[in-house]
Design a binder for these strands. Structure first.
Lengths: 90, 90
DNA sequence: CGGGCCAATACCTTCTCGGTATGGCGGCGG
DNA sequence: CCGCCGCCATACCGAGAAGGTATTGGCCCG
């Protein structure tokens, strides 16, 4: 599992549509579909159901969404903190 | 920034020595050195000072170490939670 | 039943990542 | 003071991951 995978997952979960998420992420749809399926493979559990309109989050997906957002927030915060610390302490 | 970079960083910070960290991570030393320097480049700040014995954490590095451990812990927890949720809810 | 929208697959290309070999530097013992 | 040892850094190469284009197959709706 990678941070990119989590970012991709969050976008798909929020858009409920792989194609729209791909546009938002500035990648094309097929690699995004693949990465999501790989993530499901790694976790050993499906995260979405596929519908005619796009995708719907499963319970496991909803659980991951919370964690993923939290992780990505902390990554961003870390960068800020490290830069501020470097600035302050030389 | 990637999760692997954070794992690498934590190992180097804990060992205070790139060569030992490389052994612990089962990778060779040169790629590990490179990945650490790339991380420093991305953050725009050095994380270690290089010493004759190995490396020493700078304040920015100490700040990152806390965050990195926390992030990696949450990643592990996420996997557990997702699997448990998938198990429970089908 | 035809057109549109969706995710999935096939195939190719590119670039990241790790490995091997080697260099350069500093400390330490003889 | 010189040679050895351990350290990190650099150069170069090969393998694998990740992205792009083209296309398919399924489903709904006119």
């Amino acid at each position: 599992m990678s941070l990119d995978q989590l970012r991709y997952f969050v976008a798909v979960a929020e858009e409920e549509n792989v194609t729209r998420a791909a546009r938002r992420l500035h990648v094309s749809q097929p690699p995004l579909s693949r990465r999501i399926r790989e993530l499901e493979g790694e976790l050993g559990a499906p995260l979405f159901t596929r519908t005619p309109r796009g995708v719907d989050l499963l319970p496991a997906g909803r659980a991951l969404l919370e964690h993923a957002r939290s992780i990505l927030r902390e990554v961003d915060r870390s960068v800020d903190v490290v830069r501020a610390t470097a600035e302050r302490d030389g």
